[in-house]
Design a protein around this nucleic acid. Structure first.
Length: 373
DNA sequence: CCCCCCCC
């Protein structure tokens, strides 16, 4: 029995075999040689509403550029934006990229025109399982699957196990995309409202997450801000499809969660241990965490900033067995001075060091956490 | 695409 008959037999006699073969020939013509008979037969079956004709579903690791048309089932791991371009004939084309994975690997799908539109309209999202039929070819970063007019992409209930290769925080570099990390939620900022360059209102906030290799600031844009509402400090969270940028001000690499990024709670086991610096080792221009006891208390002061707003500051001294340092407590932290006594054990997490009034000092601002034992 | 790290 040939492959076409094999596929026909799965149709349950909804049309005659002659009719089926005729349609398959038409499909091959339509596709102007872009697909073989077997693929055309599957496509015709698909047109007739029969989708499980694809028996020899391939695994991603077995897809090579010379394989031609392939069918496989995979889970969407990241979605990149759609780009428009001008065709020579004057029409506007669209091209989009989606990354999918199964238990054997991951591969990029290049989606053309109508297929690309499903990214824009949100009918495909990270985490969806898809049946995919497309054409394998060499792309910019290895083998890719092209899905145009005659490709297939449809939701399926089939379970896809994806061994998501997640990175560690210490490995994140400027410019990286497709970042998957998990970590412990260490800090949550307020939401800031701002006006975008195009005049529209924007929202932005930050969280701080840590794993066993370090910690990193994460920026959430617009509606992604809302994904923090159900989260609590110390939760294990995961980030899917983030991208990394160096912050102009701090010169630190941060993870951005934009349109297609995801932040959510995870069951993953995440270890984070704060690392404390001996006071004697502090040099200016870095962020530090210290653990010690209060060894000096100043006055709470109110002052007016250059921009006319008012703020508070108080200074304390903290000592450990290596040295003593002045710590300026800004904003709400300043009020803490009233609760402290000499010898109160204190931990100051993520304070910024600089050459100060007398010597090196630490600034405890709105990114700093302070705990008193 | 945003915001910081400000006082005496």
């Amino acid at each position: 029995m040939d492959e076409i008959t094999e596929i026909y037999n799965k149709l349950g006699g909804i049309i005659s075999e002659d009719d089926f073969r005729k349609r398959v020939d038409e499909k091959v013509d339509q596709m102007s040689g872009l697909c073989d008979m077997k693929t055309a037969a599957m496509l015709v079956a698909h047109d007739l509403g029969v989708t499980d004709t694809v028996k020899d579903i391939i695994k991603i690791k077995d897809i090579t550029a010379d394989i031609g048309n392939v069918s496989f089932v995979a889970k969407v791991t990241s979605i990149l934006d759609v780009r428009e371009f001008n065709r020579n004939d004057g029409t506007i084309g669209r091209v989009g990229t989606v990354k999918v994975a199964d238990e054997t690997g991951s591969i990029k799908l290049t989606l053309w025109d109508d297929r690309a539109d499903i990214i824009k309209d949100g009918s495909v999202e990270v985490g969806d399982s898809l049946e995919i039929t497309g054409y394998a070819k060499d792309g910019y970063s290895g083998t890719e699957i092209n899905i145009g007019k005659y490709g297939l992409m449809r939701q399926t209930d089939q379970k896809v196990e994806v061994s998501m290769q997640s990175q560690k925080i210490a490995d994140i570099k400027d410019g990286m995309s497709d970042i998957n990390i998990s970590g412990k939620l260490l800090d949550i900022s307020d939401v800031r409202n701002f006006q975008k360059k195009d005049g529209n209102p924007g929202r932005v906030m930050n969280i701080l997450i840590g794993d066993e290799t370090g910690k990193i600031r994460v920026t959430l844009w617009d509606e992604k801000v809302d994904s923090t509402t159900s989260l609590n400090l110390d939760d294990a969270v995961e980030i899917i499809n983030g991208y990394a940028r160096t912050n102009n001000f701090s010169q630190q690499v941060e993870v951005q969660i934009g349109n297609h990024g995801v932040l959510r709670k995870t069951e993953a086991n995440v270890e984070y241990k704060e690392s404390y610096t001996p006071i004697a080792d502090i040099i200016p221009g870095e962020s530090y965490s210290i653990k010690g006891f209060v060894s000096g208390l100043g006055e709470l002061r109110e002052f007016e900033k250059d921009d006319g707003t008012s703020n508070m500051v108080s200074n304390i001294y903290v000592s450990d067995d290596t040295g003593r340092i002045r710590v300026a407590l800004w904003g709400d932290h300043a009020l803490l001075v009233d609760e402290l006594d000499i010898e109160t054990p204190i931990e100051i997490i993520d304070a910024y060091s600089k050459s100060g009034y007398e010597d090196i000092e630490l600034s405890a601002g709105n990114r700093t956490r302070i705990t008193i034992k």
